[in-house]
Design a protein around this nucleic acid. Structure first.
Length: 298
DNA sequence: AAAGTCCGCAACCGCTATTTC
DNA sequence: AGAAATAGCGGTTGCGGACTT
C-alpha cells in the first residue's frame, strides 16, 4: 500500500526549533487545540511538517511537561516498569506524570541501561572470565539502541520494530500443583541490587516445557490493564489462539524472532505459577500495586 | 588556546495500527 | 473492501556543549 509522505520536505525547516516557532505552535494549539497535525503547519504558518510539530508539542511544549532531572524514585520506577513492559516507553511514560516517552528512552539509554550493563559486566567478571556466550545467556542485560544486533538477542523482551502491543505470550509452567503464587516470583530477573543467587533460577529459554500461548488481546488491553482495577477485567479479554509454540508467527523461545509479527509482551515461565488469566492478573496486579505505592505512598 | 573526543538530548526516520472515506 | 490519511511508537542520528589531551 503506497503512502504519500506526511509532508513535502521542500522548503521546510529542519533541526532545532526556534523560540519563534515554539511560540507560534503554542499559540496555535492554545486556540485550536491538538490534532490535525498534517494541516497544522500550514494553518499556523509554520515551515515544519506536521509530524515535527506534533513531536515538538508532545515532547517539549506541552504545559504539563515536567522539566528537570529524573529523581531516584522515578528511576527506580522506570527500572521496575521496564522489567514489566520492556521498551514500551510510552506505556512507561504514562506511569510517570509529566515525563515523555522520548525523555525516558533517552534517560534509559544514557543512564540506566549503561548502569545495568556496567553492573552486569562487573558481576560477570567477578564470577568467571568474561565469556560472550555467558553474557548472552543472562537476561538482565537490557540493550540500548546503539548496541549491536547480536546483543539485542540477549533481551527478554524483543521488539525489533515499532509496533503496538496486541499480543501477550506466556510461558506455560510445568504443573506445580502445590505452588501458590508468591509475589517474589513476579520479578523474574534479579534487580540490579539483588544478589544473583536469589531463589529465582532462570529456566533455559529453549526448554521445550516452556510452551507459549499466544493470547490475542483486545484493543488497548495493556493500557487498560495498567490503568484499571484488575478485578474488573474478564478472561474474555483474551482469546486463546491455541498452541503457538510452533506457530509461524512466533519463534522458538530460545531464538527470539526478529520478524515484524513479534509483538509480544514476554512473561517468563517464572512469572507464572499458573497459566490461567486469574493468576496472570494477580501477578500483574501485585506488581502494579507495588508500583503504585512507589508513585503515591498515600 | 586549539583540536579532538565524548555524551546527552532533541529531532528525525521508518514502521504499524487505527480511522476515515 | 480497500486505499489513503492520520496518529503514535521505538530506533537512530546528529548537533552542540562539556570535557580531555
Amino acid at each position: 500500500m503506497g503512502r504519500s509522505p506526511c509532508c513535502s520536505k521542500e522548503g521546510l525547516n529542519r533541526g532545532a526549533w526556534t523560540a519563534m516557532e515554539d511560540r507560534i505552535l503554542k499559540d496555535y494549539i492554545k486556540i485550536h487545540g491538538e490534532g490535525q497535525w498534517r494541516n497544522l503547519p500550514k494553518r499556523a504558518g509554520l515551515k515544519r511538517c506536521g509530524k515535527s510539530c506534533r513531536l515538538r508539542w508532545l515532547n517539549y511544549l506541552r504545559p504539563d511537561i515536567k522539566r528537570g532531572n529524573i529523581t531516584r524514585d522515578e528511576e527506580e520506577l522506570i527500572i521496575r516498569l521496564h522489567k514489566l513492559l520492556g521498551n514500551r516507553w510510552s506505556l512507561i511514560a504514562g506511569r510517570l506524570p509529566g515525563r515523555t516517552d522520548n525523555e525516558i528512552k533517552n534517560y534509559w539509554n544514557t543512564n540506566i541501561g549503561k548502569k545495568l550493563q556496567d553492573k552486569q559486566s562487573r558481576s560477570l567478571s567477578n564470577r568467571k572470565p568474561s565469556n560472550r556466550s555467558q553474557q548472552k545467556a543472562n537476561p538482565t542485560i537490557e540493550t540500548s539502541a546503539r548496541l549491536p544486533s547480536e546483543a539485542k538477542l540477549t533481551s527478554c523482551v524483543i521488539r525489533t520494530k515499532a509496533t503496538r502491543c496486541t499480543k501477550v505470550f506466556i510461558n506455560v509452567p510445568e504443573p506445580q500443583l502445590e505452588d501458590t503464587y508468591k509475589p517474589s516470583v513476579l520479578r523474574p530477573f534479579p534487580l540490579p541490587e539483588e544478589p544473583e543467587s536469589s531463589e529465582f533460577v532462570p529456566k533455559e529459554d529453549n526448554d521445550p516445557s516452556n510452551l507459549m500461548i499466544d493470547l490475542e488481546v483486545d484493543e488497548n488491553f495493556l493500557s487498560e490493564f495498567l490503568n484499571s482495577e484488575f478485578s474488573q477485567l474478564q478472561p474474555s479479554h483474551f482469546q486463546n489462539k491455541g498452541d503457538s509454540y510452533s506457530n509461524s508467527d512466533t519463534c522458538d523461545p530460545g531464538q527470539y524472532s526478529s520478524t515484524n509479527s513479534d509483538q509480544s509482551l514476554f512473561l517468563s515461565n517464572d512469572m507464572m505459577q499458573d497459566a490461567d488469566f486469574t493468576s496472570m492478573a494477580s501477578l500483574m496486579e501485585s506488581e502494579l500495586d507495588w508500583l503504585q505505592d512507589q508513585a503515591d505512598p498515600n
